[in-house]
């Protein structure tokens, strides 16, 4: 984009959350004007890269720039999303773009949050296949119908947009597993090859792990992959209730 002529540019007002633990200063919002193409709808990540060209100290994570690696989850004009697949046309209101880190997690620097708590909750649900099926050195058979049950579950990219949009997760990030981890819990429960459903449900059976979900559905509205963690959580709740009565 360095070759675009000036008359084809317009100015966008960007406001970015800044925090550096090494500088004693409190977090603040840094405002700057950036030049963006007039006739091309660039992504929020592109705009952020332009801002970084002006001020190289701005820190954020990014990798695939196509919405599959989950690095650049951030709060964009108040809504969690991935910078790389959110076009400015969708995000910008009144020619303003406000970028903040994902809410509810400790901020490391600028737009970078500490994901430890998020990953720890993921690890708790035993995110791997537990199976005793005989394979004879081949695949474990699975019908097309059974495989279809994993659609909408396995595609999670662990960006954290859902869990950090969830008030229940903000409140109890150590005890409530959060929508992302629960979506994965249900992914393994739903897998016809997995034999540990009862064991998995045992681990989820307490007042916090699952039941702190109150169906607020922020997770569904922000998921950049269009997944529905709320539905998965409801299925788990149903299984737990069914077992109990």
């Amino acid at each position: 984009m360095n070759s675009i002529a000036a008359e084809q540019l317009k100015t966008l007002k960007v406001s970015i959350y800044r925090y550096d633990p090494d500088i004693g200063k409190k977090p603040y919002m840094q405002s700057m004007d950036i030049d963006i193409p007039k006739d091309k709808d660039i992504m929020v990540l592109d705009a952020l890269q332009l801002a970084k060209e002006i001020d190289p100290t701005i820190s954020f994570r990014r990798s695939c720039r196509e919405g599959v690696c989950g690095s650049d989850g951030m709060n964009i004009n108040g809504k969690n999303g991935l910078g790389c697949i959110t076009p400015l046309s969708e995000a910008v209101r009144g020619n303003k773009l406000e970028l903040r880190p994902l809410p509810g997690l400790p901020v490391v620097k600028d737009l970078i949050v500490d994901m430890t708590q998020f990953v720890d909750q993921y690890k708790k649900i035993q995110p791997y296949l537990i199976t005793d099926k005989k394979t004879d050195g081949k695949e474990i058979p699975q019908t097309v119908e059974d495989r279809d049950k994993l659609d909408g579950l396995y595609e999670c990219i662990m960006c954290g947009c859902c869990s950090t949009a969830c008030p229940s997760f903000w409140w109890n990030p150590d005890k409530f597993l959060g929508p992302a981890a629960l979506l994965q819990a249900y992914r393994f429960i739903s897998d016809s090859r997995d034999v540990a459903t009862e064991e998995r449900l045992d681990q989820l059976e307490d007042a916090f792990s699952v039941f702190r979900c109150h169906g607020i559905m922020n997770c569904v509205s922000v998921c950049p992959k269009g997944l529905n963690p709320n539905k998965a959580i409801n299925e788990i709740k149903k299984m737990l209730i069914k077992r109990a009565i």
Binding site: Y128, L129, T131, V144, D146, R147, Y154, D191, D194
Partner: peptide, 8 residues
Amino acid sequence: NMGLPFSR
């Protein structure tokens, strides 16, 4: 066998 959800 590790769990990779191949299409079928």
